[in-house]
Write a protein that binds this DNA or RNA. Structure first.
Lengths: 336, 336
DNA sequence: AGGCGTTGGTTATGCGATTAAGCTAGGTTA
DNA sequence: TAACCTAGCTTAATCGCATAACCAACGCCT
C-alpha cells in the first residue's frame, strides 16, 4: 500500500525498459505497416513489457496527434428520462460505437446558449446532440464554426433548414394525431387534452395537443385543454374541475405517467373508466400494463438505432445538415 | 455555405493575427499572474481576436500539458435506470462540477473486466464508477495501477476493504429489513418475497430478500421466495402459483415496478388488496401514487449529493479507499 | 571495390496548450 | 557613464503519441 499516486505507464516507459525508441514501441503496439520490419523477437519483448506495466494508450494524446475526433456528446434534457428514451440511448450508443464513435452522456448542464456551447466545444466532440432548450442561435453558430455538428432535439426542422443545425426529433403532432384518431374512432366527440406545465415538457405537450386538435377538426369534435403538473394533486384538481364543468368523453393524458395520475384521480372520484371516460396515454411503457383498469397508449416505435447512427455519422463525415425524425406512433388500444 | 470543414481556432491562430507569441495569448486568456506584465491594450486586442475567431480552449491539449484529470466516468448498468437513480445522477453531476470535476455517463458497455477497464483507462479519468457486474479483480487492478480510483456500485464493502476498490452502494439488506418489519408490524406472518431473475437486478433482490428474512426471523414468521421477470406474464404466473399453494399475507415485490405488476395480476385474479394480501414495493416512485389500490413502499433517501461528491473527490485527491452507502430506507405505508 | 537492397531500427517533428526562463529597449539611479 | 530596473514581451521545453524520413550495418551482386 504505497502512498505514491501511481501514474499510468507511457510508451516512453516501455521504450526505456525494452531498450528501444518510443517510435518502435508505437509501431509495435499499433501493428503499424511500417512496423512490419520489426522482428517478432523485439515485438514480443515490447508487448510483454507493455502488458507487465499495464499500459493503456492515452486516448487524448493520440487524438491530439492524429486530429481525429470520435466523441459524440449527448446532453440530457433537464428532465428525468423515461425508459423509452433510456432504452433508445443504450442501443444508439452501441450502434455509434460499432461505427467508431463514442457516445457520452452529459447531464444537468447548468448553462445554456453560448456558455454551454463553449463548455461542450472544449471537449472537441465530432457532434453534440442537445435539447433545444439548451441551444441558442449564437451557441449553435459557435459550435458549427468549430466544425462540430449540432443536433437539436425538439428543434423545428423547418426552421432549422439551411442554418447548419441538424435535428433529431420526435414528431409530437403525429403522436397527438394518432391518439386523437383512436379516441374519436371509439365514438368520443368531447375530448380533453393535458399539457404539462413543466417547460421542457410543455413544448412537447403543445405539439401533441396540436395533433389532437387536427384529428378533432376532421370530424368536428371539441377539445378542452388542461395544464397539469406531474403530481397527484394537480391530477385531482383537473378531475375536480371536470366535476364542475362536466366530464369529457375521451382524455389524452400527454403520456402514460400523466395519464396514470389522472386515472388514479378519476378512480378516487368514483368515475367509471373506461365506461364513462376513455383514457389514453403515450409511450406504452410497462406502467400501462400495471394499471387497472388498463390504459390505452400510443406506442412510439423508433427506426433501428443502427440506421440513425449511420445517418448521424454521415452528417459528421460529410459535414452536412440532416433532419431525422425516426419515431412513429402506433396506437395500442387496451380499453374497449 | 463553404464546404471546407472548419477547424476550431487555436492559440496559434490568435497569436498570428494579433502579432504576438502564443505564450502571450495563453497568459492573456488565462489571466495568468505572470501576465500582469502585459498591458491592457495588448490584452484587449488578443481577447477581441479570440472572440472573433470563436476560440475555445482545447480541454484535452490543456490537460495533457498540465497533467490534470477532471473526468469522472459513470458507467451505466445494463439496466434501464429508474427515476430515483437518474435524479440522483443529475444532482451528483452538479455537485461534482462545483468541485471542478466533470461527470460523464457512458452507457451500454459491451465488455467487462480487463477489456472494459482498458477502454475506460484510455480516457484517463480521475475515477470510474461502475456496477460490479462490469468489474473483475484484474480490471480493478489495472485501473488502480494507472492511478484511477474505482468505485464499485453493488460490490460488497466488506470484501473490498483493503483491495483499493472503493464502494458506493445501496444497502439492500436494510431496505428488505425495513419492508419486512413494516409488513410484520401489520400483523402478517406468512410473507412472500419476489427476486428478479435479470442478473444485475437479481443481486439486489437477494440482498433485499436477506433483509426480509432477518426481519422475519425476529418474530418467527415464514418467508416464501419467487423468481420473477419484469413482465405481466411472470407476475400472473406467481399469482397462479399462489392460487395453488395458498395466498401469502404480505408480499414484498422487490421494487415499485415489480410490485405494480404483481398488483395488476392480483386484481385480475380477483384478490382483495390490501384486504387479503398486503403489498409493498420500494423506491417510492410516482408510480405508487397512480395505482389503485395504493401501494406501500420503502422510500430510499440519499444523503446530500454534495456530501457524496465531496467524499468521492477526497478519495481521488488523497488516493484513498472509501466506502459510501449514502442511502437509507424509510417505509411509507399507504395501505392500512 | 563500389553500388544496391534489406533489415532493424532511430531521429525529428508536430498536435494545442502551459509555463519557467530568458531577452531587449528604454528609463532611473549612483 | 556604468550599473541596474522594469515593462513587455519571446524562446523553448514539455505533456503522450504517431509517423514520415532518415540511417547504419550487413550481405550480395557485378
Amino acid at each position: 500500500m504505497t502512498s505514491i499516486r501511481p501514474r499510468p505507464a507511457t510508451i516512453t516507459d516501455i521504450a526505456r525498459q525494452a531498450g528501444v525508441s518510443t517510435a518502435t514501441v508505437s509501431y509495435v503496439l499499433n501493428d503499424a505497416p511500417a512496423g512490419a520490419r520489426i522482428p517478432e523477437e523485439t515485438r514480443a519483448r515490447v508487448r510483454a513489457i507493455a502488458d507487465e506495466l499495464g499500459y493503456v494508450p492515452h486516448a487524448n494524446a493520440r487524438s491530439l496527434r492524429t486530429g481525429s475526433r470520435d466523441l459524440v456528446l449527448y446532453v440530457h434534457f433537464d428532465v428525468v428520462h423515461g425508459p423509452l428514451a433510456t432504452g433508445f440511448l443504450y442501443e444508439f450508443t452501441r450502434a455509434l460505437r460499432d461505427l467508431g464513435y463514442t457516445l457520452m452522456q452529459y447531464g444537468a448542464e447548468r448553462h445554456r446558449g453560448v456558455k454551454a456551447a463553449r463548455s461542450w466545444a472544449a471537449l472537441r466532440p465530432a457532434a453534440v446532440i442537445a435539447g433545444d432548450d439548451r441551444l441558442t442561435p449564437a451557441g449553435v453558430a459557435l459550435l458549427l464554426k468549430a466544425g462540430i455538428r449540432v443536433f437539436g432535439m425538439g428543434s423545428d426542422p423547418a426552421a432549422a433548414k439551411g442554418t447548419g443545425l441538424s435535428t433529431l426529433v420526435m414528431d409530437h403532432r403525429a403522436i397527438g394525431l394518432a391518439a386523437g384518431r383512436d379516441l374519436l374512432e371509439r365514438g368520443y366527440r368531447d375530448l380533453a387534452v393535458v399539457v404539462p406545465v413543466d417547460p421542457p415538457l410543455r413544448v412537447m405537450g403543445e405539439g401533441r395537443l396540436e395533433g389532437v386538435r387536427e384529428a378533432a377538426a376532421e370530424v368536428g369534435a371539441s377539445v378542452r385543454v388542461h395544464e397539469m403538473a406531474y403530481s397527484p394533486g394537480s391530477a385531482a384538481g383537473i378531475v375536480a374541475a371536470w366535476g364542475e364543468e362536466g366530464l369529457p368523453e375521451g382524455v389524452f393524458g400527454y403520456d402514460d405517467e400523466f395519464a396514470g395520475l389522472l386515472l388514479g384521480a378519476l378512480l378516487d372520484a368514483g368515475v367509471d373508466v373506461p365506461g364513462r371516460v376513455g383514457l389514453m396515454g403515450a409511450d406504452d411503457v410497462m406502467l400501462c400494463r400495471m394499471l387497472r383498469p388498463t390504459l390505452s397508449s400510443v406506442r412510439v416505435e423508433s427506426e433501428s438505432p443502427e440506421e440513425i447512427a449511420r445517418r448521424v455519422v454521415e452528417s459528421i463525415t460529410e459535414g452536412t445538415e440532416v433532419h431525422l425524425s425516426p419515431w412513429s406512433p402506433v396506437p395500442v388500444r387496451r380499453q374497449t
